[in-house]
Amino acid sequence: MSANVKLFSLAPVGWKFPADRDGLIFTPGQFFLVGRWGVGEAPFGGASSPFEKGSIEIGVRKAGNVTAALHQLARGDEMTIRGPYGNGYPLDFFKGKDVVMVTGGCGIPPIATLIEYIIARRELFGRVYLLYGALTPDDLLFEERYKHWEKHIKVILTVDKPTPDWKGHIGLVSELTREIKIDPVNTATAMCGPGPMAAALENILRPLGIADRRIFVSEERKMSCGIGKCQHCTTGDKYVCTDGPVFYYDQVQSNWD
């Protein structure tokens, strides 16, 4: 997908992932613990369409032992997966509203799956925006999906360091909120990105009239057990694995760790 991010498609052999009554195999925003025997496992947000029963896609940034080992795998190699865990974006709340999705760099996988969900049920949503920023054009992930997404939603991209052929925006993703037209009292915002991005957005979304309870953020921690026991993913009095990873903004904004 980029210099250090690879897309993996995990397909069970001889069976399919089970779907719920709405046909979803997971809720956008939920995560899986994916790994390889002998190496270990790490948490990843599902990135593919949640309606796809044959496989689950995850984006893997080479950053540690597990991800480095996964990067060495070849097509057809075996991996382990368990999940889905945690709470995803509250889809019923999003229905009937304008939706603004804001993300940066490799925070996009949970947003990508949310976009796939929205496109599959497009008539249920109002105006839908994706505001996506990265350091360089090469760091913008899921490039091959943009054409398809643009047919259904407004995709606005920005980079910090443009290449000479870059035609999109330059600067922080928080500045892109100027490009959107929304009805603030009927808008839901989905965010997935680093803390400073969330803080910058808070200062922009609030003056636009979007209340904290309409902003949903996905938190990143090193989930190990996935069932609220091992304590690795705690933030304040919350467990990211079972209370999140998607939170109302006001649930986590004041957390210190």
């Binding site: 025997w37 002998g38 270990g40």
Partner: peptide
Amino acid sequence: YCTSTEDKTSFDQTVCSRCRKWDAC
């Protein structure tokens, strides 16, 4: 009761196990 999950592999790589170990916050 903090733990971490880690894998172990035998020398000849024929046996591996997914282990849970005590960790400390």
